[in-house]
Design a binder for these strands. Sequence first.
DNA 1: CCTATATATCAACTATTGTTGAAGCGTAGA
DNA 2: TCTACGCTTCAACAATAGTTGATATATAGG
Lengths: 119, 119
Amino acid sequence: MDERQALAAFAALGQEHRLRVVRALVTAGPDGLAAGVLADTVGIASTNLSFHLKELSHAGLITSRREGKSVIYSAAYAGLSDLVQFLMRDCCQGHPEVCNPAVAALAACNCPTGDTLHA
Amino acid sequence: MDERQALAAFAALGQEHRLRVVRALVTAGPDGLAAGVLADTVGIASTNLSFHLKELSHAGLITSRREGKSVIYSAAYAGLSDLVQFLMRDCCQGHPEVCNPAVAALAACNCPTGDTLHA
DNA sequence: CCTATATATCAACTATTGTTGAAGCGTAGA
DNA sequence: TCTACGCTTCAACAATAGTTGATATATAGG
């Protein structure tokens, strides 16, 4: 991930409605949620949601697939991961014993194992 | 961390100059960097940098201390950690075996151990 | 106490971003 | 093929954020 992508991703997350969308999708898991459900969850007009979904998609934070009349959105876990990596890269000039917060970040997800999703 | 703080933090990181400041400080480690050095590193006027530093400080992403004539800024590792935690909280509805990206995020920092910095 | 250095604040301007309503496309079922 | 539904696109407006230059505060040294 380069700076331009990271900027797009952080800017995308720095907006109330978009952050709620991403959190809803992260919670929902790989099955995702339909655009209509998201509009209700977040509480905005569908026309406005569309704008934000495009923004998030562009930033690589969500993906979409059509399913009948609905469009289903889901979190792009690899994109989220890359973003955190970008932020923490080169931390403490190669003395990571002081940059433990990433450990805490991991703990929040309670992920015991796994290696399939990250590109 | 609540939504308001997370929004402030992500919005802060979604700006070219502020993202560069944070990355420079994350790289620098706990010793931090003087405002003047940051202005040169990032390539903006000091008056403009001040504005961005206030924004980052407000968002809980950096801290500052005075040292002689200079003001030294450093990354708030706990704040960064909280932010990632907020984003990943409740992921996959309690089925974390699918949300492994946080593992990758951790790997980026190569932190073997540590528990002192996170509040 | 005066000057130089380092950083912060303020007010004005400019640029960017978010919201809304109207209209358009794709899919499903009658 | 006609109608209904779900979602997206477009153009206009409203709101917010970033930059700049002038001015102010704090510290250190002469």
